[in-house]
Design a protein around this nucleic acid. Sequence first.
DNA 1: TTGTACGCGTTATCAT
DNA 2: ATGATAACGCGTACAA
Lengths: 343, 343
Amino acid sequence: MEQVTIKDIARICGVGVSTVSRAINNHPDINPETKNMINRVIREQGYVPNNSARNLKRTEAKSIAVLVKGMNNPFFTSMVKSIEKEIKQKKYAMVLHHVEYDEDEIDVALELIKEKRLKGIIFLGGYFKHSSEKLGYLNVPFILSTAGGIGETMNQAMYSTITVDDRKESYQIVEYLIQSGHRKIAMLSASRQDESIGKLRLEGYKKALEEHGISFRQELIKSMDETVEPYSMENGYQATRQLLDSKEEFTALYAISDMMAVGALRAIHEAGKRVPEDYSVVGFDGIDIGKYCIPTITTVNQPIEEMAKETIGLLFDIIAGKKKHQHKVFSGEIVIRESTKSI
Amino acid sequence: MEQVTIKDIARICGVGVSTVSRAINNHPDINPETKNMINRVIREQGYVPNNSARNLKRTEAKSIAVLVKGMNNPFFTSMVKSIEKEIKQKKYAMVLHHVEYDEDEIDVALELIKEKRLKGIIFLGGYFKHSSEKLGYLNVPFILSTAGGIGETMNQAMYSTITVDDRKESYQIVEYLIQSGHRKIAMLSASRQDESIGKLRLEGYKKALEEHGISFRQELIKSMDETVEPYSMENGYQATRQLLDSKEEFTALYAISDMMAVGALRAIHEAGKRVPEDYSVVGFDGIDIGKYCIPTITTVNQPIEEMAKETIGLLFDIIAGKKKHQHKVFSGEIVIRESTKSI
DNA sequence: TTGTACGCGTTATCAT
DNA sequence: ATGATAACGCGTACAA
């Protein structure tokens, strides 16, 4: 279990530690021969530099952390991939970290800042109802991307945001349903206490109903089961079953995530009904699975690629001091597929 | 950008650094009053201990790394969750790390060992064709869980493995198809050069055919497109389309992952055919999505929960010196759902 | 080109 | 109960 250190290597090679250090870090001022010799010994000994010590010493590390809330959602997976591509292109290192739904992302970020020498942070998802005070501890630029519940209690100049307008997009997908002739539109919503995207999407739903003279009925709203993973297929399945069992009449179902919509499809199928003949179903996010389901799912597509590009681009600009924090809103796009029909 | 350190806290509080350290780490020998005072200042200053320095100094860290190859596969997601639960129960910290398909997991592991003070490593997925020499550098116990390509070049006493017998399980699911009357069974396989689970599952397929007097036909094997994400829905979709376009006759389709099976379902649907009426489809893994698809997918269920428990249990026993490395094989279970029928 | 010595922020040890 | 100080492993200024 004994760790071999840089000193051991130096001793074995009969050189000083700085020479070994130079060999490791490809410094110019070193004799190629000694360098080769040192590298050979390093391999022989299986020596790996201790990163803790390195980070402790190093001035800068050119790394960016990406904190993802909830590792399950495939939506974030593709977002992360896009971001990673961009980060690598800029020759930065990406530190990916998952945050549980019940963890505090700021605390995690603070840990990370002290551990790695971060140049910036990207938060993906999450709710973000933190005080300005706490946010102030974050002494590197950070961006909230596709995060909900932003801007009420927080000082807008302290950070950037990249989002879609959840309220508006939600409004539009519901309006699409209304224009397709649906008037009894059920919704698979977030939990009742949700203060995040769930709330915004619910507001959009209500507004669309209102503007088209349809009265809101609480009975048509099914909230997520908090004991089941949020936004999951299982959650969508459960909620839809409840809805079906309740015998409430509806012709369309709006799930606030594509994953939930998949569960809804199943529940409807099991009830002996068909999509879209008996019920139209729409989701939200635009993840891959919606393209493979049978039927494929009509949804609000979030421009993942663009948002990722903008996120990382903005972050680099802020790091370089070229820009100030800003709040960008992207437009979603309704993608009509097989799960909806006009009535 | 100025980092506030333990010294600053000590100075502000008018105490020594060791006292601050004691306050942070809940040492017994400290006056509750000073402790409270220090904690207040820490909060006020937004001080967070530097983990690099901590790890550098700390004797032991009670942490276990989990390295996952390929972040996309939901199969690993649930595996990780189970493992995390167990690790937390033992009061250890889990370090989760994703490894890209083209990264070398051993190198990543070596980095991690030096950085955190790991007590053990769990590798999830991946191919593992490393030399004993390189493995020897890993000076903490490690377990290969659900990893393929094990045991040929590697010294079995150096590590443990937790797997299902991919060859056997593959054999059984194909045999199930054969017993259901299918004789023309197509397969969505790994890439041709695959030396891992893909190869084993292909061998199982061949053996089942052989033992039931069915001749193997290369035309019925579609390999994954290497430019598309391995084991993905897209990959399954593409391969199935090719298969369908090739006009080869078959009555059953065996996809080596559930995700690929989902893609296959879609491709078949688009071709105007039906599952299971026209084609029976089976997958492999037993992930959630298979329960929600329409139709639900017959598959080989891997006992994720048990394997996770065994993995982490064994690792702790090895760390404690209670057990030696061993190689456990779990049995899968064929779960018959809607996507298959007898002919 | 190479070696020596110091300091990074923290914890452990030993005094007090 | 508290404080001073020596490590931890590494990078780097500076001396040689």
